[in-house]
Design a protein around this nucleic acid. Sequence first.
RNA 1: GGCGACAUAGCCAAGUGGUAAGGCAAGGGUCUGCAAAAUCCUCAUCGACGGUUCGAAUCCGUCUGUCGCCUCCA
Length: 500
Amino acid sequence: MDSIYFHDTMQGKKVEFEPRIPNEMSMYVCGLTTSNDSHIGHARTAIVFDVIRRIFRKNGYKVKYISNFTDIDDKIIQKAQEENSTAQEVAERYMHRYIDVIQKMHISEPDMYPKVTDHIPQIIEAVEKLIKNGFAYESSGDVYFRVRKSEEYGKLSKKKLDELISGARILPGEKKEDPLDFALWKEAKPGEPFWESPWGNGRPGWHIECSVMALKYLGNHFDIHGGGQDLIFPHHENEIAQAEGITCAKPFCRYWIHTGWVTLDKVKMSKSIGYVFRIKDALKHYHPNVLRYFFLATLYSSPLEFNVEAIERAGKNVEKIATSLRRFRDVKLKILLKSPLMKGNSWNSFLVYSNEYHYHLRDNFNTPAAFGTIHVTLRELNRVLDDIESLTSTTMKKIESYLEDFFETLGFVDIEDTTFVLDTSDITNALRDVVVSFDIELPDGVLSLDDLVNRLIQKRTEARKNKDFALSDEIRDQLLKHQIVLEDSQGKTTYRLEKQ
RNA sequence: GGCGACAUAGCCAAGUGGUAAGGCAAGGGUCUGCAAAAUCCUCAUCGACGGUUCGAAUCCGUCUGUCGCCUCCA
């Protein structure tokens, strides 16, 4: 089995992945706090870890991938109070909206989405263990983690305790021994949701749930812990301190992978300043395959600027790919009809590309480099398709298996059928008049865009046969005005929708 | 203030010691009734300065610039 290499945040360098259990990979990724609609930054993280899982599977690993929902926290409670509803209602609403939007993006989901509120007993048990082990203390209804007791605190974020002090502070109402300490359990204020505990009614702190759920579902020393870069400190640092305090064993996990953030106007999107672009809004304008290409066209760990130009560029790339694949599909049908199984080895170069492709993915999940290989491969494919005579069904099947593998590994669904205009109702309406203007008779009832365009193509084909190029060009121009591009190739006219 | 990341062509973006992948845009050729698509060709010495090395975009130092973390955040 070929090795997989990637950048581990803890070691601060690219390392060779060595699994806890041979041929198995366990991964925990911090998920959403369900206090609001998810934004494209969440989508990036979900796609990245989806693809990482796919790459491991392609390389023969059995993968277990867990991602949580934090369904109780201050923001959720606050929102519930504002809406005069309950924290549970708010949390479930955004949880369902997230899942809905993730499915629409064709992002394959984790094996499980554990929720904090389903794990309160385990969390309480973990806090008790931390108290017993001397890592935590109760303080009038709250429980805090004793950061200075954790000798290696700061090892992930490369921070030194003394440097943190200036930033640390004690909020009103907190009863900490040390400003660095953080809450494991918070006493409920009047009107807030709560669970009973040995320290009174309250709720879990912000970081303990991930330690508890990761340990519960993946066990100690699991392989990969992932999340956004902004979670490194304090969230992941705290997770390590908690988990290693609970188990009294190191390491909590073997590797850390962090995704870069998505920026708007060069600035990181942030809940606190409300500057976000929601996934559901992105889906109104762009096909999931275009968004997936956009996210994977940059290395997962780099910052990524989200803007219209960048997405349009991704769209152009997907269109280029889709065009080649559609042409491949057409030629394949012809070849299968025409040629018997026989010799054919022009797929050999595709084997070389395939190896190069998977090499890139094993090397720090380098999807941008893999796209580079895809483009080179498709250029070769286009050349091959120009010479139909040399093709055999064996060759076509072989090539097809490589192509399918390429796009499956990156999680594209039916990339050759990607549409670039999501809402065609206006175009369809306008087209009816165009059809009529060319004296084409229409039946009553609703006609699809496809139906209307095909009637125009038919009319134009007749005109071309009669060498009436004026009429032919007029039809083409009229269609172009409505974002429909005609292409004549190999005696057949096809059309595609073009973004405005 | 402390800590850290990044800086590659008009734009986006790989590449971390051996002489710059890929895409978009642009220009030119082939194909086409004309287009489109496709294909071929052209298009950078890697922020600045200094150092290490036979050799550096890649390592070290200084500077400049951008961004981030230190408070909730994927």
